[in-house]
């Protein structure tokens, strides 16, 4: 249900803004860790799926193995993702899940962006 709400929220309110604080994009409030596009994509994709494999994310974000691996590692180190490695027959399989910390970070990031839009429109 949480993944449905995440998508509904991004879909319905994404371009209209909501009431909230008036942050500045340059303030330390902005989570630089998920502000980067590939990392933002990883967190967003995992927010609407129970889990995604490395290959799912690579196909979805149209990126390279090395690039995805580096960014996923940063998110994992920050505790935003959990990573499980296993074997599907003889093929290694890496599966990612978003953690509650990662979901909170995405919510805060959405709040930040929405508040920014709202503040600009009030000027």
């Amino acid at each position: 249900m949480a993944k449905g709400r995440a998508l509904a929220r991004a879909t319905e309110t994404g371009l209209h803004g909501v009431a909230g604080g008036v942050p500045d994009a340059g303030t330390p409030d902005l989570d630089r860790l998920i502000h980067e596009r590939i990392r933002l994509g990883i967190v967003s994709a995992l927010a609407v799926n129970d889990s995604l494999t490395f290959n799912d994310l690579k196909r979805l974000l149209r990126t390279t193995d090395g690039n995805l691996s580096v960014h996923a590692r940063k998110l994992e180190d920050a505790g935003y993702l959990t990573c499980a490695k296993s074997f599907d027959g003889r093929i290694p399989r890496t599966e990612y899940r978003i953690s509650p910390t990662g979901r909170d970070a995405l919510e805060r990031y959405l709040d930040h962006m929405e508040a920014l839009i709202h503040a600009t429109r009030r000027r």
């Binding site: 993944k3 995440a6 998508l7 991004a10 879909t11 994404g14 371009l15 500045d24 994009a25 502000h35 596009r37 933002l40 994509g41 967003s44 994709a45 995992l46 927010a47 609407v48 799926n49 995604l52 979805l60 974000l61 995405l106 959405l110 962006m113 929405e114 920014l116 839009i117 503040a119 600009t120 429109r121």
Partner: peptide
Amino acid sequence: PALHERAIDNLRFIRETMESAT
């Protein structure tokens, strides 16, 4: 680009990623 334009662009990216991932 103005800050709010970048914010709109970021939200659009999140929405599109979620839509294509689900």
